[in-house]
Design a protein around this nucleic acid. Structure first.
Lengths: 341, 341
DNA sequence: CTGAAAGCGCTTACAG
DNA sequence: CTGAAAGCGCTTACAG
């Protein structure tokens, strides 16, 4: 209305830009996609016009374009700091590359996860990064076969699904070696929770590492929350033969356990040693600071994003089978076995 | 290829469904949008055909539809547990209502924030929920005027931008009253960090509450990280007149401060009291458990999503000016002022 | 209640 | 290097 170029209803289109710049709509389209086919003076003129008019590219109308520049991320629970770090790592790389993240939270429900996958496909996401909810069957039935899909942290039983994970077994071996070197022989694995691959592999890694040293593995199941862990750890100390060390399913469980042990007067790092898994941000700030296995969620997320972008680029499935190593971070929640100081 | 209905290239379209179901494409389109115009037997037949063929609705092609069913969320930093709770609250409500969340992380950079807003508009998001990066000017210049935009937690200086926030001043008053009742009169505000509305309002609330009681406010600036807070808290105790209580910018600062105080042998809750702000999940599990102001990020997020969906539905701007009250949660990081036990 | 036609705002060959 | 034409897979009046 102001300059005769603004349409009375709706927003500006590529045609408005073309007319204002004195070129054809094809040329504007090519400029929008940074094509090298357009001469520099022409593209500069078009860009200047776009800026002047305040035109916003409508990607939804780019229905014939191969890519949507949308990538879906599906995780079980954003309020778990481990998953939010992972998501932050994914998003940073996608954003840098010009993609936009679409987020979904399955809250560990397979049906909700399927619904989210369905919706993301309706929005034509170029790829999916998913940490499967507990009990997920193969994704073959839910996602279009042509959609690049990368599993992270956990994987379904189907070997054909692509996976970027963590070497949980190696991490557990590091934890056991550390405790064994401190003289511990009565070690309990705390937090046998859900039955997904990440839990199974941690447990198996723990068991193998103990047996290799001729020690008997012990388990104390508990929910993966701070309060469940606090109760379970306290209950454990009332056993006939209380352990001298705890290896926890993750840092959240470990921090809960430390709180529970503190509440019954046990000195963590002296009376009993506690090891976590993940190395979340607060692990170094709880009292005592937590010895843990660093699984570097942020970098894992960044790597997942890179794999998926490469697959989108090459029109192929993401590279599979990668497993990232972990690192032991020794702090003050572990110490010599009592009587061995 | 298998049944003659699957096209050799590309995915199924609405026309494939129409043909297989023996109806017109308009009818299929109406069924996809749950129109009541279609007779039940017809819509059942169409739905059955969709399921049988495995057709996936292509929302990107629905270029003429009023809504994209995409809503953008822009926050400064996903790895801050406060923001991830907020995001989880937003996403849960959007997901329930059939919308999909598009996520962006400004990392406190105004230019990155503008770029993200630009991209989200290219994807035709129906609305934007944003916690502005430090130093954000009004969004009037960045976002289309027609796009419903709701600010959360922080707001720009422009009064015209719609905002859903927290009553920071009331929260600070609660914290000061609690400490005053315990006999504290030497209280320091720890963590004067960035200059956004949330910080300014907390500081103002602190100052007002102290002055009302005839007390002199004191400030100790520090970065909003655990380690900065740890150093600053320890430095504070070396003052000529060390405070007897700390009110911290947020829980992250409070937990850092507790770690720093512990490291120099101060007993938090006895030698010195510490109050946080936010009540993040780990606040109850640090040692000692943290007294803090609960700002209920998850519920704030849910409310933000509801406001924005209502605005999208009514084709209006989101209701503005809402400010949610806070709640004091007393734990063991606060106690009587030394000499007043 | 259903269908044929026109249209949305882009992209993609293709001609020059 | 640029432009006219056809096409993408939907939605939207409109006629019956």
């Amino acid at each position: 209305v102001a300059d005769g170029k603004t349409p009375e209803k709706g927003l500006l289109t590529i045609d408005d830009v073309a007319q204002a710049a004195g070129v054809s709509r094809s040329t504007v389209s090519l400029v929008l996609r940074n094509s090298t086919l357009v001469a520099t003076p022409t593209s500069e003129k078009v860009r200047e016009t776009i800026a002047r008019l305040g035109y916003v590219y409508n990607r939804k109308a780019a229905i014939r374009a191969r890519l949507s520049h949308l990538i879906g991320i599906i995780i079980p629970d954003l309020s778990n700091p481990f998953f939010s770090e992972l998501t932050a790592g994914i998003d940073a790389v996608l954003n840098e590359a010009g993609w936009v993240s679409v987020l979904g939270s399955s809250r560990e429900a397979v049906e909700r996860q399927s619904l989210i996958i369905q919706r993301m496909q309706e929005h034509q996401v170029d790829a999916l990064i998913v940490c499967p909810a507990v009990g997920s069957p193969s994704f073959a039935g839910v996602a279009q076969p042509s959609l690049p899909l990368l599993q992270v942290l956990r994987h379904t039983d189907t070997a054909s699904d692509h996976y970027l994970g963590i070497d949980y077994a190696q991490g557990m071996a590091l934890a056991v070696e550390h405790l064994a070197a401190l003289g511990h022989s009565s070690i309990v694995f705390l937090g046998e929770g859900p039955h997904h691959s990440a839990a199974i592999e941690r447990r198996a890694g723990f068991e193998d590492a103990l047996r290799r040293r001729g020690l008997e593995p012990r388990y104390k199941p508990c929910g993966l929350t701070r309060s469940d862990a606090a109760d379970a750890a306290a209950a454990l100390m009332a056993d006939a033969e209380p352990p001298t060390a705890l290896i926890c399913f993750n840092d959240v469980v470990a921090m809960g356990a430390m709180a529970g042990l503190d509440a019954i007067g046990k000195r963590v790092g002296a009376d009993i040693s506690v090891v976590g898994f993940d190395n979340v941000a607060e692990a170094s700030f709880v009292r005592p600071p937590l010895t843990t296995i660093d699984s570097n969620a942020r970098e894992l997320g960044a790597q997942a994003a890179r794999l998926v972008l490469a697959a989108v680029d090459k029109r192929s499935e993401p590279a599979a089978g990668s497993v990232m190593p972990t690192r032991l971070v020794v702090r003050r929640s572990t110490g010599p076995a009592p009587g061995r100081a």
